[in-house]
Every structure is written in C-alpha cells, then in structure tokens.
Design a binder for these strands. Structure first.
Lengths: 216, 216
DNA sequence: ATTGCAGATCTTGTATACACAAACGTTGAC
DNA sequence: GTCAACGTTTGTGTATACAAGATCTGCAAT
C-alpha cells in the first residue's frame, strides 16, 4: 500500500479507469469511492486532484469529477506526440548508447522475439512495453524518459487494442529489428524515423483503432 | 479568485515558485502557507498535490513538500523536449494552416518585430510567447497545444534569462522570420528544423544559460 | 569530541463535522 | 398539459480535530 492512502488510491483509481472499470463519462462520487475503499473522503479527494492534474479525469467545481473520454481524434493526437517523443528518444539513444543500455535493449528485444514467435499477444504486449522503456532509458535524458513513460501509460489501453489486429505482432517485431539496428549502428536519424512510423498510427491502423474502440 | 480556493492557491504558489519567491530546495510548510493565505490546511494540501503532479514540487511522504531544483542539466533536457514538440507543432501548422491561424501568426510576428526593433526585451519576451502560442494553436492538435503550453510555462523563467544575452533579440527575430516563411509556404520539414534549432539551447547558448543561472 | 539513544516537539496524514451550492422533484398556476 | 418556482436533498468545499510518524534536542557513554 504505496506509502500513504492518497497515492495508493490514485494508483487504484487510475488502474480502474485505464481498465475501463470506470467508464469514460462516468461520474466519480467521492463518498461512494470512500466507502468502496474503506477510507474517508479526504484521501479520495487528494487522489482525484492528482488524477485531474494528470488529465485522466476532470473536476468541475462544485459538480464533481467525471472520467474523461478522449475520443478517437484526441487519442490520435496523443499517439502523434508519443511518436515524436519516442523518435527523439531513439535518436538520442543512438548517439549516446552505452554498454548497459545496449544490453537492456538486446534483452528486451529478445523477449519480444520469443513472444512474437509464440504468437502470444499478451506476453508481447508486456515485453513490448519493456522494450520501449529500455529505449527511453537509453536516451539518457531523465526528463524525456519521464514524459515518455507517462504518455505511454496513458496510451496503454489503446496499444493493447492495436495488438489484437491481424499480423500486427510480426509486423511490430520486424519494425523493432530495424529500430535496434539503427540504434546500434549509431544512426540517430534513421532510428528517429523508424520509431516515428512505428509508434504513430497512420492510415488503416487508425481506422482499426477506431473500429475496435467502437466495438466496446 | 479562481472558482475554488484550492485552484487559486495552486496558481498562487505556482507563480511564487516560478518567480523564485519560493526558492528551489525550499521547504513548503503547510501550516505556514495556510496562515499566509488565510485559509485552512485542506486547500493548501490540495494545491500542493497538484503542483506535485505537475512536477514543480516534490512531496515526500510524511516529510513535507520541497520546491524542485531542476538544475542546468535537467533544464537542458526540458528544452530539448520542448524543441521537439515545437518542431512537430510547426510542421503540422505548415500542413494544416488555415486563414485564422495565418492571421494570428502574422499579427504576433508583427508585434515581435516592433519590440525587437525597439530593443525592448521585456515586451519581446511577452510577444515572443504569444507568437509561439499562435504556432501551437495553428498545429490544430489540442493535445499538442496543451503539452506545449505546459512545458512553455515551466520553462518561462529560463527563457527570460536567455533573452538578456547580447544580440539574442535580433537573432531570435530573424529566426522567427524564417519560421513564418516555412510555415506559410507549407514547408513542414523546414519549419520543423528551424523551430528545433530556434528553441533548443545548443553550444554557447547553454553555457550562457548556466552562467546566468549561477549568477542568481 | 563524537556518536547513539530517548524524550519532546513539530508536521504530516486521515477522519469527521459543518456550510453551502447545485441538482432534482414536487406543487401550483397559467 | 406544460412550465416555472420553491423546497428538499444530495454531494462538494472548507475547517478543525486527532493520530501517527519524523525531526530535533539534549544527555550520556564510549
């Protein structure tokens, strides 16, 4: 139970939102949440304030908190920014790569290979996350790493939907290969370019996403 | 007094931090703040939680809040990310430019010209901000616009320091001219490239920044 | 003189109580 | 039958009280 009740609640509610237990548009009643988690309203409010600052919910003065529904268009915008940041991380990683980062990337890349070969999309989903985090870390920019991790977290549920699409697993993995190549050979521009297209959701991949969102 | 006391306090404390009234590393005592603003501790805590989420302060469990001292290196990293995001905004703006955005950019660019010609660095500081915001808006990506605005806000004090450096005013303005050109001719790649170098702080500009920070 | 421990003090974390605003339902008039 | 106004109810916003943990001070022992 993470240090204090407020932070624990923040994580708890955040997970509930990201896993659609609290649906977009749903109203979060402070008293109800307090009862549900067996605490008073005070830490609940603190958790909600933090979630508001992160952008997961919106607190309208005197009218309570509602879960934000980003909508396809905004999600597209978020992926667009994510692509840009990952591109930067990749280009920095290529320039600054050290032994430890290289090993971390190799290791996570290897795990992705296994999961992809096994066709295990749940495992790949997790390994993929670790792979990308290894690249953030390799950028050696703490701030960039934090920003990437935060956005990555918010986009997590949609990434999961994406992986369900046919062939996406093997396509994704072969893109990973090219990215690793570019980073290891120190080609920053190429790493940037590859990551941008890998992360971004252009063309039919966007309509796939919209379709799977609508299917909920 | 922004709707409720908590948000008002957040803005108030945020300004105090950004203007160095609360120095980096300084401890923010909840009771002291509550007395100072004539409210109870509850809204003060809410404001602090939000500032923690934004990244301006750090709340260590049971040990109070301290103002974060980014340090030159982290500030450099922040400018690096800012440069990337502005680059993206510029490239999108070039692609999606509409009449209203074009006029907004022209107008703010014109104001920059006047301030630069007058050598009024305080006025230029403000006009420059509006110019960049016009570009964010022209990107037509709400999410990107928000991210840019937020980072821009956090970097505000350091930008101000930068402008004090000799010749920076006219250099900055001529860079603006090229940027406007690229956006208006629809050259997204060029706009991106120009904005990246305009916003980033490479080489001697970084040492200038460090020097002026050390002078505090 | 320095280090370690114990008590005191101060600050944060959580709960509860109260005040006040907004939503909702009911009633009455047109 | 519809709409508006009023009263009720519900839930948020703020204050205060209490509990628990952290820091600090002083004293003692090495």
């Amino acid at each position: 139970m993470s240090e204090n009740v407020g932070r624990w609640l923040r994580d708890e509610i955040e997970n509930a939102i990201l896993s659609y237990e609290f649906a977009p548009g749903e109203r979060l009643d402070e008293t109800v949440l307090a009862n549900r988690f067996g605490v008073s309203r005070t830490p609940v409010r603190e958790a909600l304030m933090q979630l508001d600052a992160i952008g997961l919910i919106e607190i309208r003065p005197r009218r309570g908190a509602i879960v934000i529904d980003p909508g396809p268009h905004r999600i597209y915008e978020m992926f667009e920014v994510m692509a840009e940041l990952e591109g930067l991380a990749g280009s920095l990683a290529a320039r600054r790569l050290d032994k430890a980062s290289r090993e971390a990337i190799t290791a996570t890349h290897g795990r992705c290979e296994k999961s992809a070969a096994a066709g295990d999309s749940d495992a790949y989903y997790y390994d993929n996350e670790e792979f990308h985090k290894a690249i953030y870390a390799a950028s050696r920019s703490d701030f960039l790493q934090e920003q990437c991790a935060q956005l990555h977290r918010r986009l997590r549920p949609y990434r999961r939907l994406q992986l369900r699409v046919r062939n996406r697993l093997s396509t994704s993995f072969s893109e990973h290969c090219a990215i690793v190549d570019a980073i290891f050979t120190g080609d920053g521009d190429e790493a940037r370019r590859l990551l941008r297209t890998h992360v971004g959701i252009q063309g039919e991949r966007f309509s796939d996403l919209v379709a799977s969102m609508a299917a909920r």
